[in-house]
Design a protein around this nucleic acid. Sequence first.
DNA 1: TGGTTGACGGTGG
DNA 2: TCCACCGCCAACC
Length: 110
Amino acid sequence: MKTLPDNFGARVLSVVRRIPPGRVATYGDVALLAGRPRAWRAVGNIMRHCRRPDVPCHRVIGAGGRIGGYGGSEMLKRSLLAAEGIVVSARRIRELDRVRWRGRSPTRTH
DNA sequence: TGGTTGACGGTGG
DNA sequence: TCCACCGCCAACC
């Protein structure tokens, strides 16, 4: 049975686009929501290739609250996150469990 | 068709 | 807590 192209890339972009402001998602979460829980590696590649303003790629972070890459402009990513009210430590996001987007409705931390 | 790359994740030291 | 190694999947050459 020939499987149709599941355009994984398009799905990833769709998921990232659905991340509400003030919230973040790890590459693993995005991969999971995209339907490929073990494709976090590919997610990183797609994000690297994506430079569209309608895709809040700065809300995609590494596991454990690590900032990760962002074209080498890690500082820029931190600034964008801070602008959304996300407290970023030297290299980690504080209260990750609170700002982490589970893919569900944008329920608040409380 | 096959090998390498990469904005990673998790575990171990 | 930080660093290194291994495993992983999709895109690219």
